[in-house]
Design a protein around this nucleic acid. Structure first.
Lengths: 358, 358
DNA sequence: CTTCGTTGCTAAATCGGGTTAGCGCCCGCT
DNA sequence: AGCGGGCGCTAACCCGATTTAGCAACGAAG
């Protein structure tokens, strides 16, 4: 059907030289190997006219490099956020002429193994192991084959793998400072995790680190968290239940919700109790889920920089590939990507009404 | 670093036979070519013990097939829906031992060309050209190289390419029937497109087809659309504005919103006017965006079957690959994937209150 | 008129596997 | 003994590139 691909041999023939000569010219090593100007021009012109592009499969076989990297995540479909991460990785890879294999493990070790093998069989030049929510993962054994980086994850066991993570501690500080700068000092409650560092699902790195940042920023200002409600899962319905429970006994002036879905539920609970955001209660949250700019009032939130995380992962992976087996001794660095604040409408100075009842 | 890959030569040596013999056994052609049971067993055992897996890059060079397909979309990050489409494609591909290259064109023809070339250079076995919102696209010229299917898109010019699309007309019927079955006959308004088929953004296939289905189902029941408001873009703020505008002059009993984001805005407008969903006004919508099950009352909506679309695209692509250049004469069929109704809380029988004012 | 050194290119091997043609060997038949 | 015919396997070439080693041609030096 399609006209056969143009090969190097075609170019060589058109230029009246041998295949290796054409190869040398096109790989830019013509000068160094004393190919004449005349031949060089003929080869270049022939390649141009025939629209020659090297067959990467062949190059892959010969040189071992396929200009391809594998992106292995536990899930691609959970949220739009995953898409942004992939988009960032995709664009960073494209900038260097690389393509991405996408694969998802669904948290299944067997699938993960098969996937890594499938990528290894295709001679990927590097691997990105991504988690869609920040956490520690145990490293698959099949990982010695190619350079790799962790994205949104940390290795359970110390390992010489670079990791790329959102700067959750700073995000926690930012969330707290938004409230402090608005003038809040009392009645600040947390929705999602308990007030102490013990009341946090330990598998969720983000929860721990956000809490650390929050407590740090508040502590510097001499402010105490008034209380907290945990959520078994960070979904709207639990945010609703937790906030409702809180409102039965307390009158918060500000809520720090541990993600936007929880904040959705909190909005509903506040509405049920006749409380206005932000006039009665300020709300600040994390993630910058698309919904955060859809709800009214629009939610002030500290954004997960998924796009940048994806880009960064590819960038770090490339440095890893480049210094290929030279000094592979250094332990995996952790790269933190800033989480930007999205200031919207859900935070206001505390109103001058009566202090909380309980 | 990593121990060198096990090659066919290793297996052959371990089994004490030549490379071709090992190849024949492992490709299952041993019987037909009269390889002895003894040798066959030795080869199989050696391959097993050495954990031999063929290098797909090499196979790709020799046979031209890389067990890889390219998924080219205009955008991967727009919505969670894109992720589901990719997930469906990914799983269907995995079932056959295929991997997916992902690429996005951002609607840019140059990027699209580069992407298709990059995939062609890597000898993909087939291509999926996906659009993240249903529409017609002009086909890139670089498309003759490999079998291809269109996903969520139709070719502008007739072309022998299969297309996979959601069954929007039937979806329109379903949305209308939900209201009819709840007993609605009057005061049914559309938000998103005008009442007539002319008042539709023509580039949006979905809009046209949904409207056709709605009018058909209502027509069969002898029911007329009471009115409509268009939205310049299908975003919450326009849904809000359009619905607000409608409520200034009319008292609808039911709204058919052309997608969930519009419905979000409609919810807010109804709330502003003190109208309860579904007691005062029923709302039905399209897409089944995640938000549809977060809002209260949960939104009844006709779901875009993204996951199934992705799977179907891969399935159709495989039939296309299989019948490779045999009978490539037939024109591209259009495959419609059903859009399932998600019955939730936003539809109720019309209350027995006064009829709409105007 | 040799010999050596450049210059400018090509022959040949390589990557890892698939495919075709054909080589020995053993058997049976005459 | 000689011949023909399966049987069981392997030599050799191919895919499309890269890379190393080395060949011809020419000029300069001895």
């Amino acid at each position: 059907m399609s006209p056969r691909r143009v090969t190097l041999a075609d170019v060589a023939k058109a230029a009246g030289v041998s295949r290796p000569t054409a190869s040398l010219v096109l790989s830019g090593r013509g000068r160094e190997l004393r190919i004449s100007q005349d031949v060089e021009q003929r080869v270049l012109r022939a390649a141009e006219e025939l629209q020659y592009r090297p067959n990467i499969v062949s190059v892959g076989l010969r040189t071992g490099t396929t200009r391809t990297i594998g992106f292995v995540s536990d899930t691609v479909a959970t949220s739009r956020l995953a898409g942004d991460m992939i988009k960032g990785a995709l664009e960073a890879a494209r900038d260097r002429g690389f393509m991405l294999f996408i694969g998802e493990t669904e948290g299944d070790d067997k699938l993960e193994l098969l996937l890594l093998q499938a990528m290894h069989d295709r001679q990927v030049d590097g691997l990105i192991l991504a988690s869609m929510f920040t956490r520690t993962i145990k490293l698959p054994k099949a990982l010695t084959a190619a350079p790799a980086v962790l994205l949104n994850a940390l290795p359970e066991q110390p390992a010489p793998l670079p990791a790329i993570l959102p700067d959750e501690v700073e995000a926690g500080r930012r969330a707290a400072r938004v409230l402090l700068e608005a003038g809040h000092r009392d009645g600040i409650y947390l929705i999602g995790v308990g007030p102490g560092l013990r009341d946090v699902p330990s598998e969720s790195l983000a929860a721990v680190e956000r809490l650390v940042g929050i407590r740090e920023a508040l502590g510097e200002a001499g402010v105490e968290v008034a209380g907290a409600r945990t959520c078994p899962d960070w979904q709207p319905e639990y945010g609703l239940a937790a906030t409702r429970d809180l409102l039965l006994t307390a009158r918060p002036r500000a809520l720090i919700c541990f993600n936007d879905r929880i904040a959705m539920g909190a909005y509903q609970a506040l509405d049920d109790f006749g409380l206005k955001v932000p006039a009665d209660v300020s709300v600040v949250s994390f993630d910058d889920h698309p919904i955060a700019s859809w709800v009214r009032p629009q939610l002030t939130t500290v954004a997960l920089p998924h796009y940048e995380l994806g880009r960064k992962a590819v960038d770090v992976l490339f440095t890893e590939i480049d210094r290929d087996r030279s000094d592979r001794d250094r332990v995996g660095e952790v790269h933190r990507v800033p989480m930007p604040l999205r200031s919207r409408e859900s935070v206001a100075p505390p109103s001058a009404v009566e202090r909380p009842a309980g």
